[in-house]
Each structure stands twice: as structure tokens, then as C-alpha cells.
């Protein structure tokens, strides 16, 4: 099963060529880890999948990204973003209560019934392993939670709109090792139902959770293979250098 099929994708921001000639498939219901040094285009790649790059006025592209056989550029933007959720690098709760943070996306997509909202919120919080910690204080401001809890809240918020794909953009970059482990545990459970793309600066994290791993360098895909293969017998010397920490 293929979730995304990308053909000859080029992306520019003004004069900067951020991604060049990218052709790849993203398998469904697996975790794809994306590694590479800064400015390698991995976040641009991630933000292409839910069309978030288009918020930048200088964005230009060529080529095609198909999801389930349909060109995402021809689908309604809001629908693409509903199907392809995103968790950002920093925990970014909205200035609302815990409950309203999770309910926000559900409300946006038209659910008004309080009971239905409560069911969605509880299910999403359980999926993100946060329910037990917050069930008695749902009306509290989301900013009262710890960093790790906030990030799991953001995962729950993304899950609540029932996406098919979840994009993680360095989700653990601001978290301590214990919180990181909790987020990774959630990701491992989620891959049975969701396609996951994880951009990470932490090579070990990519090795721990990724079924497949892609290595980007200077806007180009260098290597994409099973994680074991990439980390034991990489085909490209530059991949080898990067995962051994020789540059980047």
C-alpha cells in the first residue's frame, strides 16, 4: 500500500531551490523516518504533504504529490489538512483549555454536539496516552501542562480530527528523554492505524522507530530504504558519513 506517491517534485521559496527532482513513494501504515542536516529540505518535504508550504507567499512548485491516487493540489486544501495532520517541533497548544484544544479541530469540521465532542476528545487523549494525566482537569489552560504533556496534547489534537496520515516535525527536539520515550511509544502504537512521517534530527530516534528511513541532503533525496539497511549497509557514502556523525 502506498499512501503518497511523489513525482518530479521541485519546490522553491523565492530564489531558493528547497527541494529538487524528488520522486518517491511513502508506504501506508508504517513509520517513515526522514533524516538529514539542517537546510536539507526535510521540513519543506514534510510541509508539502499537507500543503502547509502554501502559507508562504514565495512558495512555488512543479511536479505532483498524489495521495490515494489523487493529486493533493487538486483537492480542497482544508480536506488535505484534515486527512494529513501535523505535530510541530515545539509544543504549540492554542490559548484554550485542554478540552478545547483537542475539540478545536473537531468543531472546525462541523461537530457541535457536546456529547460527540466529549467522545472525540476522550478517545484522542487516550490514543496519545494523556487521558489518565488530565481527565480531572480538562478545563485547565493547556499552558499549565508540562512540555511533554503539551506535546502529547498536540498529538491528541491532531488525532481528534481523524486523519489518515500524521506528520511529525522533530516532535521531541524540546523534550527530556522520558517525555521523548512516551512520544515514541505513542508513535509505535499509532502506526497500526496511521501512516506516519517523522522528520528528526536525532539519528538514533530514526533508527529506533522508523520502518523505513530517508536521507536528505541539500534538497535532494540521497537514499531511501528499510531502516535496518540504511543503518547497516547504506548504499551511499554520504549517508554512511551522516549517520556516523562525520558531518551535519
Amino acid at each position: 500500500m502506498v499512501a503518497f506517491s511523489i513525482r518530479d517534485l521541485n519546490i522553491w521559496f523565492g530564489a531558493v531551490h528547497a527541494l529538487s527532482n524528488l520522486t518517491m513513494d511513502i508506504p501506508a501504515k508504517e513509520i517513515l523516518s526522514v533524516i538529514g542536516p539542517s537546510n536539507s529540505g526535510k521540513t519543506t518535504f514534510l510541509r508539502m504533504l499537507n500543503r502547509l508550504n502554501e502559507l508562504n507567499v514565495n512558495f512555488r512548485m512543479s511536479g505532483a504529490v498524489d495521495m490515494g491516487g489523487k493529486d493533493i493540489r487538486k483537492m480542497e486544501t482544508e480536506l488535505v489538512r484534515k486527512k494529513v495532520g501535523m505535530v510541530f517541533a515545539l509544543p504549540l497548544p492554542l490559548p484554550l483549555s485542554i478540552f478545547e484544544n483537542v475539540a478545536y479541530g473537531v468543531r472546525i469540521h462541523g461537530v457541535k454536539n457536546r456529547n460527540k465532542l466529549e467522545v472525540s476528545v476522550e478517545r484522542a487523549l487516550r490514543q496519545a496516552y494523556l487521558w489518565e494525566e488530565v481527565k480531572d482537569r480538562l478545563e485547565l489552560s493547556a499552558f499549565k501542562l508540562s512540555g511533554g504533556q503539551q506535546q502529547r496534547l498536540c498529538i491528541a489534537r491532531t488525532l481528534a480530527v481523524e486523519p489518515e496520515v500524521i506528520l511529525f516535525d522533530e516532535p521531541c527536539s524540546g523534550l527530556d528523554p522520558v517525555s521523548t520515550a512516551k512520544v515514541e511509544e505513542a508513535m509505535m502504537k499509532l502506526k497500526t492505524d496511521y501512516t506516519i512521517v517523522l522528520v528528526t534530527n536525532n539519528v538514533k530516534q530514526a533508527a529506533r522507530v522508523g520502518d523505513k528511513t530517508a536521507f536528505f541532503l541539500s534538497g535532494k533525496l540521497v537514499e531511501l530504504d528499510k531502516t535496518d539497511t540504511v543503518f547497516t549497509v547504506p548504499r551511499d557514502k554520504r549517508t554512511d558519513d551522516y549517520i556516523r556523525g562525520k558531518f551535519g
Binding site: E78, K82, Y104
Partner: peptide, 11 residues
């Protein structure tokens, strides 16, 4: 970032 989060949820 608030706007970006909201848009990323499909708003």
C-alpha cells in the same frame, strides 16, 4: 504559530 496550528488542523 497559533495561525499555523489552526490552519494545519484544516481550519
Amino acid at each position: 504559530s497559533f495561525r499555523e496550528v489552526s490552519r494545519s488542523l484544516g481550519a
